[in-house]
Each structure stands twice: as C-alpha cells, then as structure tokens.
Amino acid sequence: MTPPPGTFPVGAAATVEELEDDPHPLLARLRAGEPVSWLPAFDGWLVTSHELAVRVMRDAAAFTVDDPRFSTAQVVGPSMLSLDGRTHTRHREPFARPFRPARTRARFTSFVQAEVDRLVTGIAPAGQAELRGDLAGPLSVAVVAEALGLEGVDAVTVRSWYEAFVVAVSDITAGRPGHAGDAYARLSAAVHEAIGVPGSASLLAEAAHQEEGLTAEEVTSNAAVLMFGGIDTTEGMISNAALHLLGHPEQLALVRADPALLDAAIEESLRFEPSASVVDRYATRDMTLGGAEIRKGDLVRVSIAGANRDPAVFPDPDRFDVRRVNAAEHLAFAHGPHFCFGAHLARLETRTALAALLDRLPGLRLDPAAAVRARGLVFRKPVRLPVHWDAAFTM
C-alpha cells in the first residue's frame, strides 16, 4: 500500500538516475529526515540508517529474501542469495565451507599472489594502465574460475557470463526488464559437465555429491551467485580502494609511510563506497520500522552506502580516513544470515593487488586528464580507472 502523498517528500523526489550517479547527498538527506522512506522510483522502502539496516538484515523472519520479485532469483533462479531458513543453509553451506579463513588462506594465497605478479609484470613497462580492466577485473575472474573449477571454460567466457547476470540484475532493480538466458544456459551446461566428472574434487562437484547434495540446477544457480560476489563486487572493491587511495594523496602518504595501515585503508574504502550498494528484503508481516508503517509484502531495500555513512556511527562520514578506528563496522559484506562468506577471499585479493601496485609501480597516480568516480545503482565502481607511474623505475 502506497503511503499518503506528502508523507515522505525526500523519497518522493528521488530518482533512479540520482542514485546511480552520485547517491550520497540524497542518502544523507534521507538518513537525516526519513531514515526509512518510501521511494516511488522503487515502489518500495529505502533504509539508510546503520542501526535499522542491521536490524533488517539480521531478522530473516521479518524481512525475507524469499520472494519471487527478488532480482537475482528472477535472473538465475532460487539460490543461497534468495532463500531463507533451512533451505538457505542447505544451499549455502556446501559453498561457504571451503571459504572459511584458514582454508581460504591455504587454498588461494599462492594463486592470488601469482596472478597479481603476472598482471602487474605485464603492465609495468608501459607506465600507464586502466586498473579496472587490466588488473581488478582479470584477477577477480581468474580467482572465481579457479574456485569453481569449470574445466575447459576460459576466463573470458566466465567474464561474459557474469557481465550478463550483472546487467540483468541491475536492470530489474531499476525497474527495467532484465534477462540473461543465453549466459545462464551456457553456465548450466558447463556445470553439468563439471559435476559429471568421476572423482572430481571441484567445488561444484563437492556441492552436488555430498549427503545433502544440491541438484545440478541448484548448483548452477549458486555458481552464478558466486560470480556476483567473487567477480563483480571484488572487482569493484579493488578498483574503489585504488581510486580512494590515489584520490587522497595525504592518505596514500600515510599508507606508504606505514604499510601496516593497508588493511585499515581497505576497510575504510569498503565503508566509504561499498561495491554492492543495496540489498533487498521483503516484509513478512505488518510492522513499524523507523517510524514508517510497513505492510506485509512491501519491498524493504537496505542502502549499504547510506548506512556506511551514518554519522551516528562514523563521525565525519564523508571523509576518507585510513586511521578511522571503527571503519570495520561497515556493512559492505551485508549482515546476518546472508553475510558474504567470500569476504576473506575478497580482502586477500584486494590487499595483494594494492600491495603490489604500491611496491612495484613508483609514482603511481591517477591520470590527471580523467575525471574518475564510482557509478552504479547496485554495483558501484569506476567505469574506467586510468593511472600513470614512472616506468623507468619499475621492478
């Protein structure tokens, strides 16, 4: 049920275009006056308060993802991202288990370091590169391809599939039709082949063949979801972190002087501009949230970007500060039962990539001729990230 006209004036004036381009001024106005606001542009509610965002994401009984309108489910079918309760656990656990911290370090540290070394070595002599396309994207794709174990499927193909999924989800979120049928059909064929290999120890085969094993179609849906988390959001995480450091020279100087600050810089970048900007939930009953009267079935969209700049939690929230003591309280990896289990791997990739860039590319700096900033309604990152360095001194 739509609230009476005039009830949420800031939300009523919000547009998809504004949220795609530069949402932070609008999110600040919403957070200050309408922390739970009705946005006709979404035909739903938008939550911008950190406290209320945590409440929504933590309470799967009151705010569910299990709804046919859920954008990702419309594109790839039911998966760990669009299910709750015991069914969610059944879908999630076979994939989450291999990504726990110790197993992530053991399984991926050498692979990630080797890929980063290869990519940085390839660009170093040129003195310039486009970091999203030349480093962040290829690294993220290579890691996911390695994790999934899709034999005979190259990184270019994996990238084309996930790009189709991302476009479709973004279109649906913006209220436009979204389809990725051909990409999904090709992924499904590759998954069926992978899980049919006798004795295979791949992540996909393990998920299909354990006692509570998933069907081939369920494995396919979850493999597509891993592409969202493992490729698009990680590519954005690396790109955004590089942009924030290079775009704030005084903060970059602090990290160069004390490399131990690199992890803190990554957490602050996640807070400042999360690569996944929103998550969707649906109310399972009538309730009051932040003074708003929500009805059963209403879309309740959580603005991670808005919550991450809540001044009640993060003083001076529009400042990028690598010494911020509580940056890790950000919600960039969501919260509650749908917390991103790939967070450890994403941090490993980002830390390894940034350390190599800062160590091996002297004088690394943004291209002064390019105006670069993050864009996107759901997945936020720079379209391009051109940089220069002093190639004569590269290692």
Score class of each variant (00 low, 15 high):
residue 33 G to R: 15
residue 129 A to I: 07
residue 260 A to C: 02
residue 111 F to P: 04
residue 245 L to R: 09
residue 144 V to Y: 01
residue 290 G to M: 06
residue 315 P to Q: 12
residue 244 H to L: 15
residue 199 G to P: 08
residue 114 A to C: 06
residue 100 R to I: 12
residue 262 L to Q: 03
residue 97 R to T: 14
residue 49 S to G: 11
residue 108 F to L: 08
residue 47 V to T: 13
residue 122 G to Q: 05
residue 382 P to N: 08
residue 237 M to E: 12
residue 133 G to S: 14
residue 102 A to R: 15
residue 81 L to N: 09
residue 208 A to P: 00
residue 202 S to T: 15
residue 273 E to A: 09
residue 301 R to Y: 04
residue 291 G to Q: 04
residue 119 L to H: 03
residue 147 A to W: 04
residue 138 P to N: 03
residue 112 V to G: 01
residue 387 V to H: 01
residue 283 A to Y: 07
residue 392 A to G: 13
residue 79 S to L: 11
residue 199 G to H: 11
residue 46 L to Y: 07
residue 20 E to N: 07
residue 49 S to Q: 07
residue 138 P to S: 07
residue 316 D to F: 05
residue 79 S to K: 06
residue 54 V to N: 00
residue 1 M to R: 13
residue 17 E to N: 09
residue 153 V to Q: 09
residue 325 V to E: 14
residue 147 A to I: 03
residue 106 A to M: 10
residue 343 A to I: 07
residue 92 R to D: 09
residue 266 I to F: 06
residue 288 T to H: 08
residue 284 T to E: 04
residue 227 M to Y: 01
residue 319 R to A: 14
residue 63 F to M: 06
residue 237 M to S: 14
residue 89 T to Q: 13
residue 222 N to M: 04
residue 143 V to S: 06
residue 378 V to N: 02
residue 292 A to R: 01
residue 47 V to S: 13
residue 361 L to G: 02
residue 388 H to N: 04
residue 241 A to C: 13
residue 199 G to S: 10
residue 260 A to M: 03
residue 5 P to R: 13
residue 159 R to I: 05
residue 307 A to P: 05
residue 10 V to R: 12
residue 392 A to N: 11
residue 106 A to C: 08
residue 276 A to I: 08
residue 203 L to P: 04
residue 172 I to K: 11
residue 55 R to L: 11
residue 359 D to M: 00
residue 230 G to L: 08
residue 38 W to D: 02
residue 138 P to R: 04
residue 7 T to P: 08
residue 374 A to H: 03
residue 171 D to H: 14
residue 367 D to S: 02
residue 172 I to R: 15
residue 272 F to A: 06
residue 306 G to S: 09
residue 157 T to V: 15
residue 62 A to I: 03
residue 323 R to P: 01
residue 35 P to A: 11
residue 181 G to I: 01
residue 380 R to W: 01
residue 134 D to R: 08
residue 8 F to H: 14
residue 120 V to R: 00
residue 167 V to A: 13
residue 345 L to N: 05
residue 284 T to Q: 13
residue 182 D to I: 13
residue 244 H to A: 13
residue 159 R to W: 12
residue 199 G to Y: 07
residue 82 S to L: 05
residue 75 V to E: 01
residue 369 A to N: 12
residue 229 G to W: 06
residue 162 Y to E: 15
residue 311 P to V: 12
residue 248 H to L: 10
residue 88 H to L: 02
residue 378 V to D: 00
